[in-house]
């Protein structure tokens, strides 16, 4: 491809970087042109964006407790703390 247009290796790096900061417009344009011509990199970019969105939703939808339950001692200590009330005062 033309020297102005990044190759697949560079495009994948730029896809990742684009999720952390806004790329200069010329670079963004170059990535877009590459992706118009390359299904792989176009998919790669979309999948990275999708992954980022999933990570954002992980705390909300993930059910973490099934495999690593809270140890009983921790549960008891927290229950004690809760008996003291929301500000830590005795009820």
């Amino acid at each position: 491809m033309n020297k102005m247009i990044p190759n697949c290796r560079q495009t994948q790096e730029l896809h990742s970087r684009g999720l952390d900061e806004k790329l200069p417009w010329l670079q963004r344009l170059a990535v877009r042109i590459h992706c118009l011509l390359c299904t792989c990199c176009s998919r790669y970019g979309k999948q990275l964006k999708f992954m980022s969105r999933l990570c954002d939703q992980l705390p909300e939808y993930g059910d973490f407790g099934k495999k690593n339950p809270m140890p009983e001692e921790s549960r008891q200590r927290i229950a004690q703390a809760l008996k003291r009330g929301p500000g830590g005062e005795a009820e």
Binding site: F64, G65, M70, R75, I78, L82
Partner: peptide, 28 residues
Amino acid sequence: FGDHLYAYAMFRVRDRQIAEDLVQEALL
């Protein structure tokens, strides 16, 4: 939700004591 909260804290901080403290703080 104790198990869920604790496991999420463990996933992030990988330390039992800190995870417990964070869950307690969050509930309070």
